[in-house]
Amino acid sequence: MSSLSRDEVAKLAGLARIEMTESELVELSSQFGMILDAVARVQEMDLSGVKATSHPQPLENIARPDVVLPSLSPEDALSGAPAQEESRFRVPQILGEAE
């Protein structure tokens, strides 16, 4: 059985901004392993001649005409924001961006 290392899970959690405890990291590393094993079974099959699929539904070219519809008012747009200033979302500065 394959498994993902604890550090790999920690890295993924960091990229996804999900806080995890040490025991969760260990637990998930084996669970991720099982998931990867399940998916890996596909590779055992002969898939020559099978077109790559990006979507399960047989849909394509769902598109709309280039027509403007009303947007939200800035008040509504900002209503869910924890902080705002001058009609803009106020967020903590990301280190090193100030200059």
């Binding site: 200033e85 803009r88 961006e97």
Partner: peptide, 15 residues
């Protein structure tokens, strides 16, 4: 668009 020079501490974002 992020604006860094209006507020001293924070970044202001216009979407």
């Amino acid at each position: 668009k992020s604006i860094h020079d209006v507020d001293v501490y924070d970044t202001l974002v216009d979407l």
